[in-house]
Nucleic acid binder design. Structure first.
Length: 782
DNA sequence: ATGGACTATGCAACTTTGTTGTTG
DNA sequence: ACAACAACTTTGTTGCATAGTCCA
């Protein structure tokens, strides 16, 4: 997840959705091994997963798990009554693990002792048992993202339905003139508050009107938009019936449907009389921070009211007088509020939050804007809400921003500024958390004990608050995160292209663990590492190359380190190409191999990555053209190889035809039968002579197409088609340096742009061909 | 009953310039 | 003899997030 937000990212999500969590195929070996070990110590997992799956929905996970799960024989008939056997099963699997090991030591007398220790172990192990595997964690994270993205796209879709012109026209007729004027009050210059009052009044009346309009209020049939836990996630979505815009419009006009629909209709109603109303959706993807393998058995059924007490959809109306958004929940709680420090819509209570965990509240406005307005509804956004969001790390928030940006289809307005200001104020008002947990990773505050090894507080900075721990037994100082300074060692700074300023003093000394010193002095004596802040460093200015001959200063290994662009000497440039070294050697100029990074491997060594060469600027052109030359040559070589194989195939084909003709001449015409035979021949053992196909590859490939990556397959496909008219493909790739070659058939003159050039080449080619055929003992004239 | 401190656990991050043998 | 390449290697420590437990 780390290389975020490339198309691969979405590809991965798609993959995740397709595969389910436990697909063992095409994973690095390393992972596989780790998982096997995991199962070894923890065998209850697969069995449980399977039984859950089979009891609820059949889903892809179930069958995949079968692939690499240990034999299930340990758990006879565990398919049903999962709940009841739950604890016992755990216990048993524990016992299996812990007892078998000592048992292999052939010492029977110790058994009683072993069991005793096991029972203790069980207690300890039991709590760890319920943590899901690393792989499952990643999968949950991706699933969470995919789920969230889908919800948000869905929200944007519904928002567009709400803007349906026909719907708005029909709905506007529901609003009487008096109500319309209430919704659009005049600005009261003396007391703007009075205008707001009027608007609120109008909204209340609208709400009442809407409640009358909405005749049939259906209950939810399932969990609908509410949060599922991981065991309820099934690989197969229910696509029985698609709810379309048409259905939506019809149902809203009729006033039939559940709470969600009613709210969406209400937004449409407000928009129909030109009120700036937002559709708000609280997205409820499954909780990726929940790493439990499965939920505890108890507390599974909640009453309808407690689960669906708080809405998923609601409405916000822009109040231009107070410059704030007004929150309206017309159906569930039926309230109107101006949110100050906490909202009534924020779900409270354990059972509620199991199904409705406020994390992503997204607003969709009438101009197709999309904004994250969670801040308004989460009273503890920074200390509690944040950590449950995917934005709790950098790559996650980048991703989230990208999704928002994709759905936000309007320009920024004044209203956005006001809202941002409001959110900032809310951040300030949230204040300091009153417990240790919430202070951990808090974006604004930090405890001294939570400082990283490489962090210090600004000298002489003052604490900004205190925290009571253990009922006032201890008082901890809380600091502002802005007083934090990140430190790095001189070497680390160098990796960022910075060196220490003269006379800078170390800010902190830490004991170096012997990780870095593995090769050097392995006597285990820990070394001291001096750390510095950014202010102690300056940008490294490498010595320039000597002027006439372009000699570059290199380090002890004969390289120059180029970790950042600033590390290239002023009068030099970096040429990044795998052929750069060869090229620089070829043109015999002064150069230095450029180390652009390091590669770490599981072994002991880390290898420098030579990303290219650094040469003086005045040598750049010659090196670049040398590289081009090298590339050109290698391309040509490749193509020649290809041509040769194509010609070879033609040779075989012609040979066959000749043999056939000779046979016909000698033994009379038995065309049909012979043809059939020869066909068979070709398809069976004469693979390489496959006529137009350049190589046996084609056949092999068809035999096992699945093993080949789709891209590659495509490439090979082209290749196969290429056969003898390959030249076309190459012309496209090489542009005007075209070689209409590879041919047996003279290339067509279709690309007349470079016709003259081509024709000469053609001739050459034909000559070549004839020559070649003669060499092979062929002659066309025969 | 609830919330928070504390603890065990496993995962992730960090590490920052090889060696030997075979083939062409 | 030399260059190019492949195979081998399968670490160790710290810090962090989470679940679960216990206690006020």
């Amino acid at each position: 997840m780390d290389n975020n937000l490339s198309p691969e990212h979405f590809h991965l999500i798609r993959k995740v959705l397709r595969e389910g969590p436990q697909n063992a195929e095409d994973r690095p070996l390393k992972r596989k091994r780790r998982r096997v070990r995991d199962y070894g110590s923890n065998e209850s997992k697969p069995a449980v997963t399977i039984s859950i799956d089979s009891s609820s929905d059949p889903e892809p996970q179930a069958e995949v798990v079968d692939l690499d799960s240990p034999p299930e024989s340990n758990y006879p008939e565990k398919d049903d009554d999962l709940e009841d056997d739950y604890g016992e099963e755990d216990y048993r699997s524990d016992e299996f693990e812990d007892v078998t090991e000592p048992a292999t030591s052939d010492d029977i007398g110790d058994v009683s002792v072993t069991i005793e220790s096991t029972s203790k172990k069980i207690k300890n192990n039991n709590r760890v048992k319920n943590l899901c595997s690393n792989e499952e964690r990643r999968w949950r994270r991706y699933y969470h993202m995919a789920y969230l993205a889908c919800l948000m796209v869905h929200g944007a879709d519904v928002n567009e339905w709400v803007n349906n012109a026909k719907l708005l026209r029909r709905l506007s007729k529901l609003i009487p003139e008096s109500l319309f004027s209430l919704l659009h009050p005049e600005k009261d210059e003396e007391m703007p508050l009075r205008s707001t009052r009027k608007l609120l009044d109008g909204l209340r009346k609208c709400m009442e009107l809407w409640q009358k309009h909405w005749k049939v209020k259906r209950r939810y049939t399932g969990l609908e938009y509410y949060m599922r836990d991981w065991q309820e996630i099934s690989g197969k979505p229910n696509l029985k019936r698609k709810f379309t815009e048409k259905d939506f419009v019809r149902q809203v006009l009729k006033g039939h449907g559940n709470c969600d629909l009613a709210t969406q209709g209400f937004v449409a109603l407000l928009r129909s009389c030109n009120v700036n109303a937002r559709l708000i959706m609280s997205c409820q993807p499954p909780d990726f921070t929940n790493l439990k393998k499965r939920e505890p058995t108890s507390t599974r059924d909640y009453s309808y009211e407690s689960v669906f007490k708080y809405p998923i959809f609601w409405c916000e109306v822009w109040d231009k007088f107070s410059k704030k958004w007004i929150t309206v929940d017309p159906t569930n709680l039926q309230t109107i509020e101006q949110v100050r420090n906490g909202s009534k819509l924020e779900p409270r209570g354990v059972s509620c939050c199991k199904r409705n965990l406020l994390r992503y509240v997204i607003g969709f406005d009438r101009k197709n804007g999309c904004k994250d307005v969670t801040r308004r509804y989460a009273s503890w956004y920074n200390s509690k809400c944040r950590r449950r969001r995917i934005t709790n790390n950098e790559s996650g928030s980048e991703w989230f921003d990208k999704v928002i940006r994709a759905l936000h289809r309007r320009k920024r307005t004044k209203i956005d500024d006001y809202e941002e200001e409001y959110f900032n104020q809310r951040d300030v008002d949230e204040g300091m958390p009153d417990n240790l947990q919430d202070l951990k990773n808090h974006p604004k505050y930090i405890l001294e004990k939570d400082l990283r090894n490489n962090q210090i507080l600004k000298p002489n900075c003052k604490e900004c608050g205190y925290l009571n721990v253990g009922n006032g037994k201890q008082i901890l100082k809380v600091y502002d995160r802005r007083d934090l300074i990140d430190l790095k060692s001189a070497k680390q700074w160098y990796m960022e292209g910075r060196v220490l300023k003269i006379g800078s003093r170390t800010r902190k000394k830490v004991m170096k663990s012997n990780r870095g010193a593995r090769y050097k002095n392995t006597d285990g004596a820990p070394e001291e590492e001096r750390l510095y802040s950014v202010e102690d460093t300056q940008v490294y200015n490498p010595p320039p190359a000597s002027v006439p001959d372009g000699k570059i200063e290199v380090n002890a290994y004969g390289n120059i380190e180029v970790f950042t662009p600033t590390m290239i000497p002023a009068n030099c440039c970096l040429i990044e190409s795998p052929n750069a070294i060869k090229a620089a050697k070829f043109v015999a100029v002064e150069y230095a191999r450029a180390v652009t990074g390091f590669k770490f491997e599981r072994g002991n060594a880390s290898k420098p990555i030579i990303g290219g060469v650094v040469v003086a600027k005045w040598f750049k052109d010659s090196v670049v053209s040398a590289i081009e030359g090298i590339e050109y040559v290698s391309e040509t070589e490749e193509r020649e190889k290809h041509e040769l194989s194509a010609l070879n195939d033609w040779n075989v084909l012609l040979m066959k035809i000749r043999i056939k003709r000779n046979l016909n001449l000698t033994y009379g015409n038995v065309q049909e039968q012979v043809e059939v035979e020869s066909d068979e021949d070709q398809s069976s053992d004469e693979a390489p002579g496959g006529g137009f196909f350049p190589s046996a590859n084609a056949h092999n490939e068809e035999a096992k197409p699945t093993a080949i990556d789709s891209d590659e397959a495509e490439y090979m496909d082209r290749d196969r088609m290429g056969g003898f008219k390959d030249g076309k493909k190459q012309t496209q790739e090489l542009g005007n340096k075209s070689f209409e070659s590879g041919g047996f058939i003279a290339p067509e003159k279709e690309k007349s742009a470079t016709a003259t050039e081509e024709s000469t080449v053609e001739q050459d080619d034909n000559e070549n061909y004839e020559q070649f055929m003669e060499e092979l003992g062929f002659s066309d004239k025969e």
